[in-house]
Design a protein around this nucleic acid. Structure first.
Length: 434
RNA sequence: CGGGGAGUAGCGCAGCCUGGUAGCGCACUACACUGGGGGUGUAGGGGCCGCAGGUUCGAAUCCUGUCUCUCCGACCA
């Protein structure tokens, strides 16, 4: 993509309303713009990141055997009355009345709707297990939205729902999702630690939150330093139960769940940090299937309510979360897997014909090799280009100027490490295409 | 929802107390110079001073109401 044709409204100064790094950087890097409190428009650069994260989530859900569906954002209040949550959910739920006076709502979650879909169609244990998910916008009318997309009112969430005949099978489905989550966050270059969690309003008795570690995290967390190692050398093998056991064995707790007295981790091994919740999984048995009468015929005859779990990932929150975990004073540092572009190509001699030609060719070659590249072909000064490129945080920067051109080399910088090397364009191309 | 702060150009802000031609920096446009870390100069464009009402000869400024944004707390993917 040529920057001269792109829509990338970057800001030199910090917008007054943005307090934390990710919010500030997302506004400055031209990723999002606020519409109303906690509601954002996604501009091209931000949308690319959102889509990448969404796709990783999708691939890992598919790999785990979940099936993608798409449920609407607007739901009828009837179902929620049936489950009893229409009154319980309170003011967080955005309620809407249609022209006929029917009560509707903008879905904050989808347990009721998915259970309804399931119960209409599935009557036999032979059709189990099933796990259905979708990636859809949700709305929760937070009392106080803040931190940009990290706690917006409208947010993109992946939510999956598992259906099993027995609690034992239900736990298997839970474990499969647990492992899928580990893989998902690892692919995004995050250290995500599963922590035993309170089940809150969703209910149930088995639940884990996944938190990514970042200095600016919202809640204080305590965990065994083994996790750093497990995350750095991420590998999962064996059956799901074994993996889950492995990842739940070391101590890890959020502020609310942490108890100094019962915490047996040695002082030197306990890490005290801050975390951002990016995923939450629950196994809640028949909490919704019973009131909503989602039953299947069992092998022995009598029908029984299905055993369910639900599994959320905050997709839009992850965009902010990743930035919180990965940035410096100059801007964002994207992990390659979610970077909007892999390479940022800068023409430092935009008025020199040979330099333009050289850059145009390198750009075309990169594109032809399937490398995602953002090409700064504008007539700005070099300083502005460097600063802008650091701000938007593409993993690889390649500067082409008259200086290097004389020797037939380009200067390549790794955004994360700051390491700079001079390479021939051929060598650079080969490295990027690999 | 309780307690603070703020709405003036795309962004960051001054002006308000003490009413009288709406300003500054960045960004934007044109031209020239510059050209490896947000460069320099000259000349420009851009405002229902959040909205409504009131006081006044006259309101960005004073008064009343209202909407919005934001920070701290309780709640949440």
């Amino acid at each position: 993509m040529r920057m001269s044709r792109y829509f990338l409204p970057t800001l030199k100064e910090n917008p007054a309303e943005a307090q934390i790094a990710s919010h500030r950087l997302m506004l400055r890097a031209g990723m999002v713009r606020q519409g109303a409190a906690g509601i954002y428009s996604w501009l091209p650069l931000g949308l690319r990141v959102l889509k990448k994260i969404e796709q990783i989530v999708r691939e890992e859900q598919d790999r785990a055997g979940a099936l993608e569906v798409l449920m609407p954002t607007i739901q009828s209040a009837d179902l929620w009355s049936e489950s009893g949550r229409y009154d319980d959910y309170g003011k967080e739920m955005l309620r809407i009345t249609d022209r006929h006076g029917r009560e509707m709502l903008y879905g904050p979650t989808n347990e009721e709707l998915i259970t309804d879909i399931f119960r209409r169609e599935v009557k036999s244990y032979r059709d189990l297990p099933k796990n259905l998910y979708h990636i859809q916008w949700k709305f929760r009318d937070e009392i106080r939205p803040r931190f940009g997309v990290m706690r917006g009112r409208e947010f993109l969430m992946k939510d999956a729902y598992s259906f099993d005949l027995t609690a034992e099978d239900g736990v298997k489905s839970y474990n499969a999702m647990f492992v899928a989550y580990l893989r998902t966050f690892a692919r995004m270059g995050l250290t995500a630690i599963p922590m035993r969690a309170d089940t809150g309003p969703i209910g149930g008795d088995l639940s884990h939150e996944f938190l990514i570690i970042a200095e600016t995290g919202e809640s204080e967390v305590f965990f065994h330093n083994k996790f750093n190692d497990m995350s750095d050398n991420f590998k999962v093998s064996g059956d799901h139960a074994t993996i889950v056991a492995e990842w739940t064995e070391p101590y890890a707790a959020t502020e609310e769940m942490h108890d100094e007295d019962s915490c047996s981790v040695a002082e030197g091994e306990l890490v005290r940090g801050r975390g951002i919740e990016v995923g939450h999984i629950f196994f809640f048995g028949d909490k919704y299937s019973k009131p909503l009468n989602a039953v299947v015929q069992g092998p022995e005859g009598p029908p029984s309510a299905v055993q369910m779990g639900s599994y959320g990932i905050g997709v839009s929150r992850l965009v902010g979360g990743i930035i919180e975990a990965s940035h410096d004073d100059n801007g964002i540092i994207w992990p390659e897997a979610v970077a909007p572009f892999k390479v940022g190509l800068m023409n430092l001699g935009p008025k020199k014909e040979d330099c333009v030609e050289f850059c145009d060719k390198l750009y075309a070659d990169l594109e032809a090799a399937g490398v995602e590249v953002l090409y700064d072909d504008r007539k700005d000064g070099a300083g502005a280009k460097f600063a802008n490129m650091d701000l938007i945080g593409l993993p690889w920067q390649v500067a082409v100027g008259p200086r290097g051109l004389k020797n037939g080399v380009v200067e390549v910088k790794n955004r994360a490490t700051g390491e700079k090397r001079e390479l021939t364009p051929e060598a650079f191309l080969a490295e990027m295409a690999a």
